[in-house]
Computed example of a mutant assay.
Amino acid sequence: SMGDGAEIAVIEGDLAEEEPFTFRLRLEDGYRIKPHIHPAYERGTILQGTLHFAHGEAFDADNTTALPEGSTFIMPPGAPMYGYAEGEVIFQLHGTGPWGIEYLDPEHDPRQ
Rank of each mutant, 00 (worst) to 15 (best):
P98L: 05
F59R: 04
G83V: 05
H55M: 11
A16M: 10
E7G: 10
A16W: 05
L47N: 06
T22N: 05
H94Q: 14
A9W: 07
P110L: 05
L47P: 01
G49D: 01
W99Y: 14
Y31L: 03
H94I: 03
L47Y: 02
R43Y: 15
G97F: 09
F91Y: 15
F73Y: 15
E57L: 04
H94M: 14
G97E: 04
A40C: 00
I8M: 12
G30F: 06
G3R: 06
K34T: 10
V89N: 00
P39T: 11
A54Q: 06
H52D: 05
P39S: 08
T72I: 13
Y103G: 04
P35D: 00
D14H: 10
S1A: 12
A54L: 07
G56N: 07
E19T: 14
S71C: 08
S1I: 11
T45E: 08
G95Q: 05
A79H: 12
E17L: 13
D29V: 09
G100E: 07
F73M: 09
I8F: 08
H55P: 02
M81E: 11
L47W: 00
T45D: 00
I46V: 15
F21T: 04
H108T: 11
F21E: 04
H52I: 08
E86H: 05
F91M: 01
A58K: 14
M81W: 10
G49A: 01
A54H: 09
G30D: 07
L67S: 02
E69R: 13
R24T: 13
F53L: 12
D29C: 05
D14A: 09
G44W: 03
E42K: 03
L93I: 13
E12R: 13
G56P: 06
D109K: 00
M2Q: 12
E88R: 11
D60I: 10
G78D: 14
L15C: 11
D4R: 00
E19A: 14
Y82A: 01
G78P: 15
T72P: 00
G3Y: 08
P110K: 07
A58G: 04
I101W: 03
D29A: 13
I33A: 06
E12V: 15
L67R: 02
P106M: 02
R111P: 00
P35Q: 01
P20V: 10
Y41F: 15
I8S: 10
A61C: 02
G100T: 08
R32F: 03
L15H: 07
E88A: 11
Y41W: 15
Y84H: 14
E69H: 06
Y103W: 15
L27Y: 11
T22Q: 10
E107A: 15
A6I: 13
R26W: 04
D105I: 07
Q92W: 04
F73R: 04
W99M: 09
R111N: 12
R26N: 05
Y82F: 15
T50H: 06
G3P: 07
R32S: 06
L27K: 05
H94D: 14
G97V: 08
H55G: 06
Q48G: 01
T45R: 07
H36E: 09
G49R: 00
Y103T: 04
F91G: 02
D105Y: 10
L15R: 10
G5K: 05
R43A: 12
L27E: 03
M81V: 13
L15P: 09
I74Y: 11
M81L: 13
